[in-house]
Design a binder for these strands. Structure first.
Lengths: 138, 138
DNA sequence: CTTGAAGCTCTAGTGACTAGAGGCCCTACA
DNA sequence: TGTAGGGCCTCTAGTCACTAGAGCTTCAAG
């Protein structure tokens, strides 16, 4: 049996966040001891570990709710879980692509000020002028 | 003179967002016509363009506020603007690095379900088990 | 038995918007 | 000149995923 603090340490999820997950129905309500404090078992630990990992991977809490609901009554059809994972992958790849464009533009902008002295200060101008950007971003 | 709607179309920033920027003091309050509607000039257009571009580059509204305050009384010292741009670049590179790790893990997870039939469904298990992950993420 | 950390609930705040209600204004067309 | 329907106004409240704080109770170590 773990206290909420022990669970927090073990998983790396902050205490108020654990309570928040419970509040929105993502984590099942644990039992309480005589003094009304939460007491978790291994299942609570596993559930929170699942959530933590999925959050780290960029899944929304809504996605995670669906994934957790799938678990248990899947049969041999995992299409939904797979669909979510793949759409998440596409999402991540898209974010990478956009961020790479941003990085290259930020590099361009930074180089305008390389010396730090005399005749520089095109940073603000560059930020105001979209027309120099290589491609689409945003 | 542009209406808020014209400004919105020209810059691609939504009307309520423009009003929001004004509310938080990021955009100066424009003049009003006889019927109390906002009327913008070229300066308003430029300011909003600057904000839009910087937002697309991932700057926070707070950063943008600083950048806009710098403009005008910089002298030949652009260290602050440059610092912000560079820290933003570091930030973006960091996000890219993390996302690449996530993508590779999501790929690994997706492949567990490649066929879609019989004996698959390790997606949920993989999400619950952090120990298989190659490196740190989150 | 005391003390201080950890737990409890509740409310409110964050960033960057977004949505909706309920009303006023402006323009184009008949 | 009248009117229809779009655009604009303010205000409040909601989103997501937490985070912070107040004010209280409980637990565990010494």
């Amino acid at each position: 049996m773990f206290s909420i603090g022990a669970l927090s340490k073990a998983t790396g999820v902050k205490v108020p966040t654990i309570r928040y997950y419970e509040e929105i129905g993502l984590l099942p309500q644990p039992g309480r001891n005589a003094g009304n404090q939460r007491r978790y078992g291994q299942d609570g630990m596993d559930a929170l570990g699942f959530i933590k990992h999925a959050r780290d991977l960029g899944f929304s809490l809504e996605d995670i709710k669906v994934l957790m609901a799938l678990d248990g009554h899947l049969g041999d059809d995992c299409a939904e879980a797979d669909r979510i994972a793949r759409s998440q992958l596409a999402n991540v790849r898209d974010r990478i692509r956009k961020l790479e464009q941003l990085a290259s533009e930020l590099e361009r902008i930074s180089h305008l000020c390389d010396g730090g002295h005399g005749g520089c200060c095109k940073v603000l101008t560059a930020l105001g002028d979209h027309s120099q950007c290589a491609g689409e971003h945003g």
